[in-house]
Design a protein around this nucleic acid. Sequence first.
DNA 1: TGGTGTGAATCCTTTCACAGCC
DNA 2: GGCTGTGAAAGGATTCACACCA
Lengths: 221, 221
Amino acid sequence: MDFLRPELIPDPTVRRLSLYLRQLEVVHRQERRTISSRQLADSLGLTDAQVRKDLTYFGTFGQPGVGYNVSELVARIRRILGTDQQWNVLLVGAGNLGRALLSYGGFAAKGLSIVAVFDNDPAKIGQSIADRPVQPLEAITDAVRQHDARLAIVAVPADSAQEVADGLIRAGIRGILNFSPSRLNVPPTVALQAVDLALQLEQLTFQVSLNSMTRSGARHP
Amino acid sequence: MDFLRPELIPDPTVRRLSLYLRQLEVVHRQERRTISSRQLADSLGLTDAQVRKDLTYFGTFGQPGVGYNVSELVARIRRILGTDQQWNVLLVGAGNLGRALLSYGGFAAKGLSIVAVFDNDPAKIGQSIADRPVQPLEAITDAVRQHDARLAIVAVPADSAQEVADGLIRAGIRGILNFSPSRLNVPPTVALQAVDLALQLEQLTFQVSLNSMTRSGARHP
DNA sequence: TGGTGTGAATCCTTTCACAGCC
DNA sequence: GGCTGTGAAAGGATTCACACCA
């Protein structure tokens, strides 16, 4: 990890790392000790060479003739992805989506915890959602400091998303998960992931349209 | 469209098509008549050559010296993506996420309409959510026929997702938007898009970890 | 034998650069 | 001059194939 040259790591590799981790956690629960690149690849519909190449970006931890030690690999991938740490997250937007996210179990599993909720609707401010009081946007800066929060979720309408993001960045947030259907502009020091439902819906209608035209196969993600 | 050889169209191209459409809709609302590949590219952080190459996969509709006719291009991309049609969608899973999706405005904008809701929890069946009664899973097959539904959203826990997907596919569904954190197995005739929150969270923590290690820049999606 | 790690080869995507048109 | 459409070149990612190890 420490000798990592991050700019050389292909983006697709990092994405697959998450898939490897998920599958390895399954295998780990089954108390399997080791796994080969072939076995891991087959369970995910990939090739063994790809698994090996991906992993060697981060070091060399397989044993020829044996494979990879499952629990060691789990620990190392968690460390690489950063989910071995605790992450405090701010949620901006207390609408239906915000509510759904607050009850989503997946955050805790990755060491993430939503520590505060914000909205600009006076009617919502002061209400409690899942035991967290909804605060005005002006309280963001203090909350970042108080909770040492590095991540934020933007779940507001498109027309206020950029404004919210700017505020979060000024307050010192280092990564944003954007649920609004808008392209956020952030400096290169701030990481950005977008959950773009409209885009994915269009990919789906495109694929289905194509399939029914051609009667051939669909592409899979 | 009719002379389209779908297997040749790169996946990234189809993804960008959605981005083009979104930006073109903005420009269209501003009553701009034409747009050049350069202008479109700049607004999305891409190159002009990429825009032109992407578009030529679907035909040739620019005018040298002038650019692309905005409203024509909007109409053609909508047609390509299939969002010029009406799509009836089944929603499986009436939890918090399902509820949030029912109130999400983006579906209607893409011609999608959630026509029925299903859940296997007896306590939920019969309840109404956003004017739609929650039905048992057994009612799926009839609903597909009745509404001529081709798409479905899977918003159930990971352990029942595959089972639900199998049922949907048997009932004739042609495309699935999967919100559960599990890899669904579907035949190649069924299109699949996954909204993988756990994966995106890990990409985010990875990028932020990297940034704070290297003090250099983050990659952007 | 079964398996990793990795250079070389292949495949795919993006960018370049320019002929041709308005 | 401005802009599209497109072959050719460059750049990345994936797969191949094999040396080497347990």
